[in-house]
Design a protein around this nucleic acid. Structure first.
Lengths: 106, 106
DNA sequence: TTAACATATGAACATTTATTCATATGTTCA
DNA sequence: TGAACATATGAATAAATGTTCATATGTTAA
């Protein structure tokens, strides 16, 4: 179904700084723990401990990785009492993952 | 234009193995040298030396990174005489980069 | 075959990064 | 206030990764 004839598309090379940011963004997706976290919270928001239990990993590990996701604006945070709930920031994130999945699954 | 109402979409968590592959794929995009290489050859195929010159980096560095791209099936290779020409493997690759760019550029 | 050139590769090194442990911070409830 | 719980964080360690240097492999043309 592909093979639409695409006009020779001149891809402008973005500024170096943007390229570094881009690489940094993909770096965040380039860790299986973070990927698993993102899948885990893709349907419903979840508390840190729930995520840790779901993945059978240490709370500390999850917390460290959630920080990375937070710093890169890939997750949303909401506090409710003692717990802190994390969810994916937007559908953008899902789409990036889907694109990658497409490629991995041939 | 977004904000189409999306049905609560049950995102199945893929097998662990797939998740590792997915992380590995993104890992490849998570290096600025490789990103720059991909942009450099996104319009036209280029020889290893040309790429190295374009990026002002060592031939060895580029060759090592091209190997990573090759192993992950992100580039196509064509030999012509002494030179070896690299190009992006498919539009898939471009799309993944574009998705990332969208997020980086807000 | 040899010289000149293009690319690939192994080893070494420096840097980055993920995880763990221990503990700090923050919240609730008695 | 203090105890119990949830989360965050700093330091330490081990593992992974990118670049460089030196050199090997492969190709062409004389």
């Amino acid at each position: 179904m592909e093979n639409k004839i695409t006009p020779a598309q001149h891809t402008e090379m973005p500024d170096l700084e943007v390229l570094f940011d881009l690489a940094d963004l993909f770096k965040v997706f380039g860790d299986s723990t973070r990927i698993r976290i993102m899948f885990t919270i893709s349907d419903n928001e979840m508390s840190v401990l729930s995520i840790a239990e779901a993945l059978n990993m240490e709370q500390s590990t999850i917390s460290h990785q959630l920080r990375v996701l937070r710093q890169n604006k890939l997750v949303r945070v909401r506090r409710e009492g003692k717990q802190i709930y994390y969810s994916l920031d937007d559908d953008h994130v899902k789409k990036i993952i889907e694109m990658g999945l497409d490629h991995v699954l041939e």
